[in-house]
Design a protein around this nucleic acid. Structure first.
Length: 335
DNA sequence: TTCATTTGACCAGT
DNA sequence: ACTGGTCAAATGAA
């Protein structure tokens, strides 16, 4: 525990130091002869350092005001006490997100891959539950200071369903897991080709996903806790008019096209695989809290028609460089 | 040899 | 005292 605290403080210190260094560099580049791109990059890095530092503090249970605070005059004593309280022991069992229920198509295997690399650090029998709860943290916790974590527990009512809770945000570089997942170690060239191929398929699927998805923004806001960077920035007329959709339907199996029910609180998303993790989902909002249900009917995921493995989709989801805002992407795609 | 998982022990909160 | 969350040594897999 002490070790963890030291590590967190070191990481925090590193982030802040890095931020200061980048700020200094930015100051040097304020000269008009310096390129705006460089300034932008430095600015991004500074913001990234701030984000990570704040995330470290928040995820560690230290309440951090994100709004700038006007310093009060006088009372240095109170400042000192604030500092003292700042690193008090975190509360346990706080900060876990709402539960997600994941149905594994292979039933006996767990919901293995949600796109991130997780490392199991514990398992616990839970009172009143038939199945133990597994505790996972991001693989990049120590290498990149990513404090995201999750719990997985098999449901009592339906053992094929896994209840997953997430905590914290991923601040790690998500590209790294794209290249170096355990499955993909080894033949790099071939794997790279496969990844590229899958990525191409994923782009198609993602568009299908977008066209099928009818969700109000409130739901999206809530889901941000779990998949923080998950968004669909496209709002093109082509999509709305169904042109893009029709185009997509030529290439994509009808099995992916499930009707979205607009009148209920459910929305349905076409079934597809995310690696070994079946990620078709039905999402339902309850009165008190948002409960997310992610389920994958085996009949669909095991369909011989639907044999697309788009394990790299999650990579796209979090890839900010994905050319949503590039009209050429869609033009090329439609041809 | 390295890295991930397992599992009993430990700790903090209630 | 009980429980959930985490640690870390032991173990296993690649």
């Amino acid at each position: 525990m002490e070790k963890t605290m030291d590590w967190e403080q070191n990481t925090l210190l590193n982030e802040l130091t890095q931020g200061r260094d980048f700020t200094n560099m930015l100051r040097k580049h304020l000269h008009p002869s310096s390129s705006p791109e460089t300034r932008q990059v430095l600015l991004d890095k500074i913001l990234c350092s701030y984000d990570k530092a704040l995330s470290l503090l928040n995820c560690s249970g230290y309440m951090v005001e994100t709004k700038p605070r006007v310093s009060t005059l006088g009372s240095p004593e109170s400042d000192a006490s604030d500092k003292k309280d700042m690193f008090k022991k975190r509360k346990t069992s706080s900060g876990w997100s709402e539960q997600i229920r994941v149905c594994s198509a292979t039933s006996l295997e767990g919901p293995l891959d949600d796109g991130y690399c997780w490392r199991k650090y514990g398992q616990k029998d839970i009172l009143g539950s038939n199945f133990p709860r597994g505790y996972y943290r991001c693989t990049h916790r120590y290498s990149q200071g990513c404090l995201a974590g999750k719990q997985i527990q098999r449901s009592d009512e339906d053992p094929t369903i896994f209840e997953v809770k997430y905590r914290g945000r991923h601040t790690c570089n998500q590209v790294s897991h794209l290249v170096a997942t355990p499955k993909e170690k080894g033949n790099h060239y071939r794997e790279k080709q496969q990844v590229e191929e899958k990525q191409k398929q994923s782009e198609e699927m993602l568009l299908s996903f977008e066209t099928e998805l009818k969700v109000n923004t409130e739901d999206l806001d809530k889901r941000e806790n779990i998949f923080p960077s998950f968004s669909f920035p496209i709002e093109s007329e082509e999509v709305q008019n169904g042109l893009l959709r029709n185009s997509l339907m030529k290439n994509i199996s009808p099995a992916f096209v499930s009707p979205a029910t607009s009148e209920s609180n459910y929305f349905s998303v076409s079934a597809f695989q995310m690696g070994s993790f079946d990620f078709s989902q039905n999402v339902q909002t309850s009165e008190s809290e948002l409960t997310e249900i992610i389920s994958a009917p085996a009949s669909v995921t095991n369909s011989p028609i639907v044999d697309l493995d788009i394990s790299s989709l999650e990579k796209l989801e979090f890839d900010q460089s994905f050319p949503f805002d590039n009209p050429e992407f869609f033009t090329n795609f439609l041809q």
